[in-house]
């Protein structure tokens, strides 16, 4: 009972209080502050529910999927246009559910930043990849059945990731949404966005069906 009360107190009082005081203390940077708060708080429920109700199998599987997506980044580093992280996150969402997809995405971002450098962008990156995996989990049936949907989602994931990160860049720099800077950011990021889209399509078309087979095999072999 006491735990429940504390939980409600946190959600009803602490979170809004945190945001409002921050907005008053940092009048010029309120957008940056609020967006960072919201992004971090949005990730919390996923980790809480993972903490509560996950079996040993799920824990190890999550570690393996996250490690595969980060290791893929190193493995395919010699080949240009091959960046499998987003594809692996989408696959995790497709085959293991939306919550699992979110966690794979968020952890992949956090862990690959151990190697490529943490920064104020880490929470935003976690959220962006997480939400891509989450939506893939919601759309899992059409994604598995139809190749067209898969390609559309691959393009969407590439564009969405770039846009979300550009929004963060603009919010961080201006402390408010500046459309001119946003357009410039999208423009300069265009070649990278294209690279994301191409590698998403390639990897999803090849890896996703392959993954389905592997999971079927696991299910029959170990009787999960």
């Amino acid at each position: 009972m006491a735990r429940k009360i504390i939980k409600y107190l946190i959600t009803i009082i602490l979170i809004p209080a945190l945001i409002i005081t921050g907005a008053f203390v940092f009048p010029q940077r309120s957008f940056t502050y609020i967006s960072l708060c919201v992004i971090i708080l949005a990730c919390v429920p996923f980790f809480l529910s993972f903490e509560k109700k996950s079996s040993t199998r799920r824990i190890v599987l999550l570690a393996v999927m996250t490690a595969l997506s980060v290791a893929g980044r190193f493995i395919f580093a010699p080949l240009p246009f091959f960046k499998p992280v987003t594809a692996m996150v989408v696959i995790a969402g497709m085959y293991f559910g939306s919550e699992f997809g979110f966690l794979t995405g968020a952890l992949s971002a956090a862990i690959s930043n151990f190697y490529f450098g943490q920064g104020a962008w880490t929470p935003f990156q976690m959220f962006s990849w997480g939400i891509i995996g989450f939506v893939a989990g919601i759309l899992s049936n059409p994604l598995i059945k139809s190749k067209v949907v898969l390609i559309i989602y691959a393009v969407f994931a590439g564009v969405a990731y770039s846009f979300l990160m550009d929004i963060w860049t603009v919010l961080w720099m201006d402390g408010a949404f500046n459309p001119a800077r946003f357009i410039a950011a999208v423009g300069t990021a265009f070649p990278i966005t294209l690279e994301y889209i191409v590698s998403n399509i390639v990897f999803l078309l090849i890896l996703a069906p392959m993954f389905g087979k592997k999971i079927e095999r696991l299910k029959t072999k170990y009787g999960i």
């Binding site: 570690a63 290791a71 190193f74 493995i75 862990i111």
Partner: peptide, 22 residues
């Protein structure tokens, strides 16, 4: 969050493993 910590430490161990397997 002990479970998340476990996932983190397993992942960090798996990554070099997978790369060398590859």
């Amino acid at each position: 969050s002990p479970k998340t910590a476990l996932v983190l430490s397993m992942t960090l161990r798996f990554i070099p493993n997978f790369v060398s397997n590859f």
